Simulated scan of single mutants.
Amino acid sequence: MRILIAPDKFKGTLTGVEAAAAMSEGALRVYPEAVVRTLPVADGGEGTLEAAVAAGYDERINAVVGPIIKPVGAAWAYNAKTHTAVIETALASGYLLSEPTVENSLRAHSYGSGQLIASALDAGATEIVIGLGGSAMTDAGSGALRALGLKLLDSHGNLVPLGGGSLLDVAAVDPSGLDPRLTNVRLRMAVDVDNPLFGYNGAAHVFAPQKGADADAVEKLDAGLRHLASLVRESTGVDIDVSGAGAAGGFPALFLAYTKTTIERGFLLVAEMVGLDAALADTDLVITGEGSLDAQSLSGKAPIGVADAAHARGLPVVVVAGHISVTAAELAKHGVVAAVSATDVAGSSEAALADAARYTTRATSEALNGI
């Protein structure tokens, strides 16, 4: 028996690596002679770097400017064989690095993420995967590109301050100082949302309130994003208000105009990065899961992506999650033959959260015993 264990994180309790370890223990209790391989996955946001490291990428740490100026140590990963780097905006420019106040929602920036891109270029990267999510800023990626040489100028030719709250003051975008190495690198933005850059479904209206913005700040941020998009369209002819450009405070937007950037479905990009297809070709059973498996999961989140890929190969799939709120019939359409939650095994969500690894292990054994 060859078992592939490929979970996403159990947000708030277990990382993808920890969840995979707990599931592995549960699987070996039922099939002690099995050959078990763990391959954590992600949707392209938080957990993307961890999945890369678990797949063999080298982890590195650089000191960068955090979203509110204070320096932070931010991890990233590199594969010297493929010259591919992996960066998460959350680790250099994340909301956990910034207190969610109105003031901070306006001045938070992505400069540190740009510094990580520069580090990847220094290492020789020709491809950079950027996991978007968990960000503190709403600056359209302007801070990151400023770390790489872009200039945002006001009507007097002076640099405007960092942060989304200053975008309305931009009179010109000057790309002449951009790092020339950007012309030879492919930037792949991993997203799991379809939000455009601005408007009522855009970066400011949907995500900025979580970062501390009140109604006035949201309107100012949205107006700034709209204004910047207009300037860019006039000067380059590129429309940066596209599906997915609103991810991570609009991080992909300016990159679309000034670099070789693509916006890609997060799970598919991570699956390619960690070699999921090759792993599926060498297994008999797949176990996947996440913290909460719900209706949103069915729209293409990582565990269902894993299940669909396995189902296409005729492989049975077992799902283990912290909580499951979809039916067995719904999961069966994706090749899932058994699904057990840690909450059901523990008897309550409180108990499951208090000892997530233990109950994930037990839920895995129960699910496998059921088939």
Rank of each mutant, 00 (worst) to 15 (best):
G249T: 02
I287G: 00
Q210W: 11
L368G: 00
A248E: 11
M137E: 15
R265L: 12
T360K: 01
L353F: 13
D214Y: 11
G370M: 07
P7R: 11
E88H: 08
G244M: 09
N158K: 15
A328H: 09
K260D: 15
G163L: 02
A278W: 09
R358S: 13
P161W: 14
G114I: 04
E219C: 03
L28Q: 09
Y95K: 15
E127M: 10
T84M: 08
N184S: 14
G249D: 07
E103P: 00
S325R: 12
H323D: 14
T343L: 10
M137A: 15
L225K: 01
L178Q: 09
A309N: 04
G244L: 08
R37L: 01
R37A: 10
G66E: 05
D8V: 08
E50H: 11
G177P: 01
L162G: 02
V274C: 01
L152P: 00
D241H: 11
R265D: 14
A357I: 07
L159E: 15
W76Y: 12
V270D: 02
G300K: 08
L178R: 07
A190E: 15
T360C: 12
T360Y: 05
A42F: 13
G165Q: 04
G199P: 03
I68P: 00
S297R: 09
A346Q: 07
A52R: 02
T138F: 01
A310Q: 10
L167W: 07
A75S: 15
L368P: 00
A302F: 04
T262F: 03
S113G: 13
S292G: 12
A332W: 06
F10G: 01
I240N: 00
L315H: 06
A328T: 10
V340H: 04
A190P: 04
R313V: 11
D355M: 11
D194I: 04
P161R: 13
A312T: 12
A42K: 06
A140H: 02
V86L: 07
P100W: 13
R37S: 07
D284H: 13
S105L: 02
S176N: 11
Q115G: 04
F198M: 04
K211G: 05
D214P: 01
D58W: 14
K211W: 10
S155E: 15
A125V: 06
